[in-house]
């Protein structure tokens, strides 16, 4: 009886805690881009199978998030933003979170294979492995370029969605991958410009911590300049229609203008913003709209075509 009481008191989780392990905010983007990959792929997929595929993509991303929280529980406890997560707060035991993540990861890949095909399941497994082993365990704590390579993990969903329909990979899903890949650094580094204190405290080598705010602003602009022409490629290669083309050009120019604003933010000699990083906050918001509009335009173009 006392054993039971101890375990209940020490590990008293709610259903919401288990849901929080899945990193629900990240899931929104994953589900959205995965569903668009599925929608723009040529061919037909039964709505039930499409739903199962998107669910598997979400479950796999959630599983990777849970394993990430298990591995990062030491630094999560140090950072203010993450200290209240279920593991550092003591509501879920680390080994239970790991088991939850691994079971969910394996189940999502198996169901994806049963519902769709081998290619989609294999890429899904690769995306989980990439996020867990390459980003979480290898890069995150070692290099300020962690976001660049790690961003690839977040770029897989549209490729998986496409593969679920077609059974393979083509130029278009690779371009969608590239768009998210090059979008991630300016998106995340804009955020990190005003939220890097936590990472510094935890010893995570985020770019503003290692190279300073000035260099981070420069990198935001460089990656945005790389992103914009890549985002126009689907239209230029006649893989997407004019709705996407106009959307990519207009949103690209807006994103580019906001990135230039980040570089020319008023700052002191050490690069610290004198405007409370107002341009970086704006660029972060713009980046969210940018990706949403681009992928939505792809789907609208496909429906219109």
């Amino acid at each position: 009886m006392s054993d039971l009481t101890t375990s209940v008191v020490a590990v008293d989780s709610s259903a919401g805690d288990w849901f929080a392990l899945l990193k629900p905010r990240v899931l929104t983007l994953v589900v959205f881009t995965g569903a668009i990959g599925l929608a723009v792929a040529p061919g037909h997929i039964h709505p039930v199978i499409a739903f199962a595929a998107v669910l598997c993509i979400a479950a796999a991303a959630g599983a990777a998030g849970a394993i990430n929280m298990w591995y990062d529980r030491d630094i999560d406890a140090i950072m203010r933003r993450t200290a209240k997560r279920p593991i550092p707060a003591g509501r879920i035991a680390p080994d239970e979170a790991l088991t939850f993540g691994v079971v969910l990861a394996v189940a999502s890949v198996l169901v994806m294979y049963l519902a769709t095909n081998f290619a989609a399941a294999a890429i899904l497994a690769l995306s989980i492995a990439f996020y867990v082993f390459v980003y979480t365990m290898w890069l995150k704590r070692r290099t300020p370029q962690n976001i660049v390579i790690g961003g690839a993990a977040g770029a897989f969903p549209p490729v998986i969605g496409w593969a679920a329909v077609t059974g393979g990979v083509d130029i278009m899903p690779l371009l969608m991958f590239a768009i998210i890949f090059f979008w991630t650094p300016p998106h995340f580094w804009s955020l990190s410009l005003w939220a890097s204190a936590d990472y510094e405290r935890a010893g995570v080598p985020m770019l503003p911590v290692v190279s300073g705010a000035r260099e981070t602003r420069r990198q935001v602009l460089i990656y945005t300049m790389l992103l914009v022409p890549i985002s126009v490629l689907p239209w230029a290669l006649h893989l997407a229609g004019p709705i996407y083309g106009i959307g990519a050009v207009v949103m690209g120019l807006i994103f580019l203008a906001s990135a230039i604003g980040v570089v020319f933010d008023k700052q002191d000699a050490s690069g610290v913003s004198l405007t409370n990083d107002k341009p970086a906050r704006r660029a972060f918001k713009v980046s969210l709209y940018y990706l949403f509009v681009l992928f939505a335009a792809l789907a609208v173009d496909r429906l219109a075509g």
Partner: peptide, 29 residues
């Protein structure tokens, strides 16, 4: 929450099975 998840999985598997039985060429899995 566990009940809802398990019931959801059961319904999903049933639906997938029905679709696969109706159109076995859908996907290689």
């Amino acid at each position: 929450a566990m009940l809802v998840v398990l019931a959801g999985i059961a319904v999903l598997f049933y639906a997938i099975a029905m679709v696969k039985l109706a159109k076995p060429d859908l996907g290689a899995g």
